[in-house]
Amino acid sequence: MDSDLIQRYNYDEFVPEKFGPWMRFLESPAVGQKGPDFPLWDLEENETSLSAIWSQNAYTIVEFGSFT
């Protein structure tokens, strides 16, 4: 993995020059077109994927966030 990217993405302080570059909603995938798939991990540290999640139900709500 790109250690510089990891450091910038996991910024250490909430200042505009560090969090601002990640506000990219306008560049996000369009509705109506298949979304990209990625690996994910559950709390038991088992690997799964976004596609494995969305294929389980007619619709799947995905809330993005963190503790802070």
Binding site: S28, P29, G32, G35, Y59, F64
Partner: peptide, 23 residues
């Protein structure tokens, strides 16, 4: 990787259909 691909907002929500298409 996933968060960044979907716009990396701090607390956004998406709904996908079974085929993986955001609706």
């Amino acid at each position: 990787a996933c968060h960044r691909a979907y716009g990396s907002m701090p607390n956004m929500s998406w709904i996908f259909n079974r085929a993986g298409m955001p609706v």
